[in-house]
Design a protein around this nucleic acid. Structure first.
Lengths: 160, 160
DNA sequence: AAACGTACCGTCCGTTTCGGACTATTGTCA
DNA sequence: TGACAATAGTCCGAAACGGACGGTACGTTT
């Protein structure tokens, strides 16, 4: 992910990465921002990114993807294998163990409605952009479909 | 989760927990089996479960939920709040960063088809059971809906 | 020009989880 | 009786988590 952002956005600070993550991948794969400081460091140690640092003031660290980094990223992207996906939702776990469906469903409904709107907004923005990158649009569409699915599910559950 | 299993299934060894987890919650919230050995230990320290152990042979540890444990479980179940759900799928991340949709979609299609069948089988079994518990059925239905959604999504992606 | 609020930006650290290697026991069928 | 599968548990290094905490830059307001 870090390599991906670095290639797509050019040289970035961990803070930049954090911003990019928050409005994209972060919606379905969250992580503490501290990792976006630790990970580029590891990648630097492995020679996959280069690092330069401001001497004064903010002392920002700016990371740049190297040729080796691009190769590693491409290799990863070219591998169609991926670990099993997971629908990590503790609301479902509570449901499983007998929690009151009504209370849970109401909360989730509000949540998913909100998120769907966000996604649809992002999608509208992206779709009309000229240089619209395929990947992010497709991912968003997965998100939209998923949100609609969950919405329908919780609504059904409410009506019983 | 451990408390939930312990209440639903009665006294169990970590190995039992592992088996139960694998065919239920494990489908959307995986964890290494080592945690099902570590967690009951923590719960025991907190007085939420009781522990007894075979002296010879397998030296099984068998855990039992206590009254305090049941109270804690009920409190947790009664709280309709839950952390944001996440659709953790690295295939989507690869897609986001520009991987070939075709290759990815084919793999995922096979995966989701398989899983959907598994879920439908479980659902059929559960539905005809007399004492069918509500929770697991509902959760399964969420899984089925989700699998169908992902299936439709990857199929669409393939056809472009 | 001082005070304030708010982004911006980074480090640190204890706790938990991950992921799998490793070992041993018991049951089963050839 | 020997082999293999299923059962059962321990251990440990590496990684992720989750915030607390501290500092800088900059535009408004007073």
């Amino acid at each position: 992910m870090v390599l991906g952002f670095l290639r797509a956005a050019g040289p970035s600070t961990p803070y930049d990465l954090k911003q990019m993550h928050a409005v994209s991948v972060g919606h379905f794969w969250s992580l503490p921002h501290s990792q976006l400081y630790a990970e580029p460091e590891r990648l630097a140690k492995a020679g996959l990114v280069g690092e330069e640092r401001e001497e004064a003031g903010r002392r920002r660290r700016r990371f740049t993807i190297t040729a080796a980094g691009e190769a590693a990223l491409d290799a990863w992207l070219a591998d169609a294998d991926a670990p099993s996906p997971e629908l990590r939702d503790v609301a479902l776990i509570k449901l499983f163990f007998g929690a009151d469906p009504h209370a849970i469903a109401e909360r989730r409904l509000a949540y998913h409605e909100q998120l769907l709107q966000t996604y649809e907004g992002l999608h509208a923005d992206l779709s009309q952009a000229k240089d619209a990158p395929r990947g992010p649009i497709s991912t968003l569409e997965a998100g939209i479909r998923h949100e609609r699915g969950m919405l329908a599910y919780w609504r059904e559950l409410l009506q019983r």
